[in-house]
Nucleic acid binder design. Structure first.
Lengths: 152, 152
DNA sequence: CTGAATACGGACCGATCCAGTCGGATATAA
DNA sequence: TTATATCCGACTGGATCGGTCCGTATTCAG
């Protein structure tokens, strides 16, 4: 599968939404949830997590909510995904602690680790601003934003 | 998370193993399983699936087993993963059938689809032969195998 | 001061998925 | 004929995920 969780999706959507509304002082979790039709309480927990990792600033009380802690250009998709889904591994063995107890086996992992790096690099090259900009489904002729070179 | 399943790992390992033993007429699932210390019956099902999709040739009976259906250079990691884990999506909405019923929401998916393409491209550029070759953890100065350009 | 709105955080549940097992059927070589 | 294989469906236990509920703390408005 190789897919990221719905929470990560929600997080990206929310940050994109915040980037699209830079004027408002703060948007509540409910505001964003309603805008996208996603469960408010679930999104709230996602945003809380993003706040904890420093990607958002929160403000309790009436007219409170969330705002981007940095410029949208300075927040990468990788950071968001990492904050929500945790470290990003393509191999299913590496659980962080135990390094694959299969005898000498996982010679597979060494090349796959590079694939992992490449994917991380791609995700790091995408900012929230990029997501917000590509709202308009206009042109197909677009400039090269990122250049990723894979060396095996 | 963004990880592939253990089955896919096993499949890659098995194919790598087969590529490393080109002389033997056929290796049984048990042979490979023992070599890596992974459950034989589970690996068997993985190999059966790979056979079904045409990546392996099987031979029942005594001294039977599996062999690569093509040259190791002609089999990509992408094919293996796709055969075992199914289609590869980074977005968690796209389930194949339903295209994300969230109102206008998933403007996120358009850029992520390109990320998906990029990842697929990377995986396609890696052959089983590559995995087998990179056994030796020798040099760090290696030539560029693949060049992936990401345009957003 | 009181109350509404909001962020925070833990506990919980149902569904799904995954790793692994079991049992049996079929094929093939010795 | 028997041992060794592939083949294939069904099942189970555990983990994870999406989502909900409830209680607490914080802040603003009246």
């Amino acid at each position: 599968m190789l897919k990221l969780t719905k929470k990560a999706d929600y997080g990206l959507m929310a940050l994109k939404y915040l980037a699209e509304h830079p004027e408002t002082p703060a948007l509540s979790a409910k505001d964003v949830a309603d805008a996208y039709g996603i469960p408010a309480q679930l999104l709230a927990k996602v945003l809380q997590r993003l706040t904890k990792t420093g990607l958002l600033r929160s403000h309790a009380g009436m007219n409170g909510g969330y705002e981007l802690a940095r410029d949208a250009r300075q927040i990468s998709a990788f950071e968001v995904i990492h904050a929500i889904d945790g470290p990003l591994f393509i191999t299913s063995c590496t659980k962080g602690t135990k390094p694959c107890e299969l005898t000498p086996s996982c010679t597979i992992k060494e090349p796959l680790a590079r694939v992992n790096e490449t994917i991380a690099g791609v995700l790091k090259s995408i900012s929230i601003q990029d997501l917000a900009e590509h709202e308009h489904p206009t042109g197909r002729s677009r400039e090269t934003h990122g250049l990723v070179v894979l060396t095996l």
